[in-house]
Design a protein around this nucleic acid. Sequence first.
RNA 1: UCCUGAGUAGCUCAAUGGCAGAGCAUCCGGCUGUUAACCGGAGGGUUGUAGGUUCGAGUCCUACCUCAGGAGCCA
Length: 458
Amino acid sequence: MSPAACYPPSLQGAAGPFHSSGGRSMGDTATRIGALRGKIGEEVRIQGWLYNRRSSGKLEFLLVRDGSGTVQCVAVNAELPEAVFAKCAAVTQESSVRVTGIVREDKRAPSGVELSLRDLEVVGPSVDFPITPKEHGPSFLLDQRHLWIRSPRQAAILKVRHSLVQACRDWLNRDGFILADAPIFTPSACEGTTTLFETQYFGEKAYLTQSGQLYNEATAMAFGKTYCFGPTFRAEKSKTRRHLIEFWMVEPEIAFATLEDVMALIERFVEGIVGRVLEERREELKVLERDPAPLEGVKAPFPRVSYDEAVRILKEKKGLPFEWGSDFGAADETALTEDYDRPFFVHGFPAAVKAFYMKRDPKDDRLSLSCDLLAPEGYGEIVGGGEREDSLDRLVGRIREHELPLEAFEWYLDLRRYGSVPHSGFGMGIERTLTWICGIEHLRETIPFPRMLNRLRP
RNA sequence: UCCUGAGUAGCUCAAUGGCAGAGCAUCCGGCUGUUAACCGGAGGGUUGUAGGUUCGAGUCCUACCUCAGGAGCCA
């Protein structure tokens, strides 16, 4: 079934659901630039910001963007009052403007449609806009992030993000999941393995969440199928292109589900959300020069590789010095992804490298009923999931082994005291998934305001 | 925390130990179809900070700061 078939008719336009190209503008009579193609020959008023200006003597070419698109406005000296043309010749980069003009088709215009300018109003001038249409370094651009997001490439990535987030929510909602968000303030570690941000909660120590996992298990026992979708915080001093201090995760959890069930869910889910992005964001992927072909091939079923097989591949086929029992490093992940044309699972990790709540494999106590989903093209892990320990006694044992304070987990243990069931779930990192879908180098561009080591501003 | 690299004009970068430069941006002038427009001109510098070597340091040495890439950890 096409996702579009599930939306109410009122949301389906000629351009498809949720496209930003049409829609009413905020001004009473203003037109969105994305809707200009349907108004050839009409006089319209647009409002936006000056992206760039080119001049050719008695002609001025103003490129105006409004978030729905960019259009070239042509001011001809001979056709305009002197004062209007003078304003056009003086308007600066990123000044906000209202432009009145006639919509015309013209092959010479960058978008094929342009505006014959009749009048221009500068709403707010812009003096010495820092980001010029030339190359800049990442440090400078990140300092200017509040302005950088106006650029076509950054806007394209964030529009893909919008569609991906919406796709995740719609897909899960349609599949019967109930949204039940986990708290941001937590009294203790969810997993106890990584560093937490500590804060004050009316005189008591509190921590920012690093996973909604434990709370999801509670809501799964209430709703059967549930998910949370929110920010998560890791006070790790990670400094790589695949780490953020603050990032977003979608975490579904299903009662009575096994590891096999959750892998089947993950592949259907990832196929669905990638398909939805392809439906809605072709133009943006083109701006990003992202070849859509590898994404079009993202169809279930995804290959499944056991941890044991993966270790053998790394040692024998790739010649990497890998020890059974450790987790994969970045180089290992990249080497594994070389052999696949779509995302693939690695399952059955050693229990020692996974969180305490992961269920052991009944056939081999060294292993856990866990899985990671690795994105192809060298991108690596985007999903981690598995089956949870549902036995009270074994879970208490794990908490003791990890030297975690038992009192803090009493409520969590209650889930095993009052009608415990097998259950499984996963977490998908939004920014890592976006980095892969957009085909970009660094995940810092996939979130409006990235929080990284050494970078809290703007 | 560790390893590697980089800090020079608003931005991106040059400059053998010997006068501090270019492109873009800005300002002035030119051009009636520009496509990161182009052409001519102008202004713009405590070379990250503090020491040191040297007749002379952007360049060499030491420490520190900042940033980038990677490792570990993870999504």
